[in-house]
Amino acid sequence: MSLPQVLDRHLRDLFGSGRVNSVLGAIPTRGPLGMAQLARTPEEVERFTLSPLACPNLLVHLTSKEARLDPTRFPLAVLARGCETRMLNQIFSEHGLRRDQVYVVGLAHCPGAIDPRRLSAQLPVLRGFPEATIEGEEVVIREESGELARLARTELVLERCRHCQNHEPLIDDYRFDLVEEADWIEPVSVDEDPGVEAIDAMIPIERWAYWRSQLERCIRCHACRDACPLCYCENCILERHTPCWVKRSVNLPENTAYQLLRVMHLVGRCTACGECERACPVDLPLGLMMRKMENLVREYYGHRSGLDPSGEHLLSIFDPRDTTATARLEQ
C-alpha cells in the first residue's frame, strides 16, 4: 500500500458510500515524474502515491475534452495540493465545473513538488522512481541501497513551489496532512524571481531578441495548451479554420501568435502553476511569460485568480468608475 492507511481507507469509503464514481490521483512511473491515474474501483486506489516526485497537475483531467466526453467519472474525488485548490476555485468561479461534481481531498502542509528537470540536472545518474521526502529545507532522495542525496529544497522544487503562498488547501471536503502537524514548519518562500527580473531589466530590443530565440524553437505540439487545466474551451480558436487565426506553419510569426494567444486567454485566470513549462518537450521558458502576466494582473488590478470560489472573474467586471488601468496609462 503506497498511501497512508487513513487516507487509503477514506478514498475506498468514498466509493462504498456512493459519494464518488472515481478518484483521481498519481501513480509512480519508471522515471521520476509520476502519472495521473483515474481509479474507478476502490482497489485501484492502491497504487496511488503522495511522493513529491509525482508532479503533473491532475486537474487537467477534470476539465479536458476527454473528461467532458466521459461524464461517468463524475462526481470525482481529486487529491489536490493548495495550489491546485486555488486553480479549482478559479474553475468553479468561471463555471468550468460545479462544486458538487468534485470531492476535494485537500493535501495540507504541502512542502512542494519536485521538478523532474531540476532533479535530473542535479542527479543525472538517477533512474526510476526513488523514494523522495522533503524534510524542512532539504530534499532527501533514497534508493534501495540507501541515501542517495540531500539537496536544497528551493533548488529542486517546481518554480511555483519556490514562491508558494498556498501550502494549505483553500477548499476541501477532506483534509490530509502531507507533513504531520508536529513536524510542520512553513517552508521558505523565495520573493526573487531571477528569470522574470532578468527580462524586466532588458531593453526592448534585447527582450525581443531573447523571445525570438526562444519562440523560434517552438514545435507547436500543443503540450502547453493541453497540459493547462484552464485551457478548456469547447471550441479552441486554434482549431478554427474559417477564419484561420493562427496558421499551422511552424515559424517565428505564427509561433509568436500562438504563444501570445495562449497567454492572453489566461489573463486574470492563470494561477502560474507552471504546468505549461513543465510539459514543454523542448524546454521553452513559458513559465516566465505566465508569471510576468500574473504579476501584471496583480499590479494593475490588484487581482489574484482563484482565491475565492464564488469570486468575480477579472475580465467580466465592468465598472465605469474603475480607473485602475487608465490611471496607470496616464501616469
Binding site: 495521473a36 483515474l38 476527454e66 500543443h222 503540450a223 493541453d226 497540459a227
Partner: peptide, 14 residues
Amino acid sequence: VAPACIGCGACTFL
C-alpha cells in the same frame, strides 16, 4: 492509457 494522456503531439513531433 486515456486517463493519463493529455492529447498533445509531443510524442509524434519528437
